[in-house]
Structures are given as C-alpha cells and as structure tokens.
Design a binder for these strands. Sequence first.
DNA 1: TAGTTGATCGTCT
DNA 2: GACGATCAACTAA
Length: 195
Amino acid sequence: MKLPRKLHRSFYLRPTLSVAKDLIGKQLVRKRGRRFLVGRIVEVEAYLGEMDPASHAYRGQTKRNEVMFRNGGHLYVYFTYGMHFCANVVTEKEGKGRAVLLRALEPLQGIAVMRRLRGKNGEGVNVTNGPAKLCEAFAIAREENGTDLLGETIFIADGEKIPPRRIGRSARIGIRNGTEKQWRFYLRGNAFVSR
DNA sequence: TAGTTGATCGTCT
DNA sequence: GACGATCAACTAA
C-alpha cells in the first residue's frame, strides 16, 4: 500500500473544532521498525482548554498536561484509570492548551500486528474501537507523549475526501462536565465507531 | 443485552 | 485522599 501525503503543520494550527471535524477520514500512521501501522480516523472529540471544564487543560498548565500547551501538531498521551493510555492531537498555537482526542480507528494496514498488541481481547472491531484500545493497538504509551506529528515515527496523512453529510456529531463520551457540548465527531455507519 | 463493578496508579486537591 | 477523556468481566433477567 502506498502511503498518502503527510499533513502540514498549518492543518493543526486552525480552530480546534475544524481540525476535529477534518480529522475524520484522515490516516494515523505509526512506524514500527520497518513496518507501518495505518488506521483511518473514524471518531474524535475536541477539548477546548481553559473554556472547557472537561479538559485536562481547564485549570491551566501542569506538569502532566504540558504537551497540550505546545504548538499544534504534537501528540499528547496521558495515562488514566491506572492502566490505560489515550492519545490526543494538539491543536492551535502554542499556549492555547487545546487538543483533539482520538477515539476510534479503522485498521487499514498492519492489522495482524495490531491484534497481537491487543492480545486476546483484540478480536473483531475491538482492535481499535476505543481511545485506550487504539493506543494499545498502535503501541502508543508514555514514551510517545510529546511526539511531533511532522516527524517520521507517528504522523497523520491525508485520506479519502469525506462528504460533510457522512460526518455525525454528538455529545462527548465518558465525561461529567461539559456534556452539553456537541464536540464529538464520527464517521456515520462505520463499524469501528464506539457505541 | 443492560447494568454494575473491579482493576490499578499518577496527578491534583 | 479522591478520582479519572476506560475496559473487560461479571451478574441478572
């Protein structure tokens, strides 16, 4: 499979909600040794920093969320529930503290490797149909926090054009505050979308 | 199949 | 000291 072209920095520096919507259909590429893992992004959520009570960045910058405040185009990986990792794409200019959480992917290349990384629970859509699941399938953990998405190890590439009508929008999942915000975007009808 | 709960620990209060 | 941008196993029906 031929790899599509890598997204430019300017893609990430735009308003977070636009980036979130436009990430649907793009391809997350992870280089492992000489192999590539590729997945189509089918579900994301936007987190808008200081104006969003559900965001890690709501109460300002800390040691944990430092990467969120970097310039757009970095990967923010955090550890939660004592056992899971979740991956975010940092957006907008440095200091804003905004990001887009990757919630689900559709595997395109390297599926066997992803299943192996997931273990016995990685069957069917369970390989990558959740934020912590896709991190495990793509071997994204603490060491990947802060990765520049314009580098060679992890980046996002252009995918097929998705018509606006195919993109669904809803409230975010798994949060207590900010549930009224319709900041979750997903590819309608795709089997890997969670729920 | 819906609803509940245990796992497990870094981070912030 | 409490709890979380989750997941999987378990229970009930």
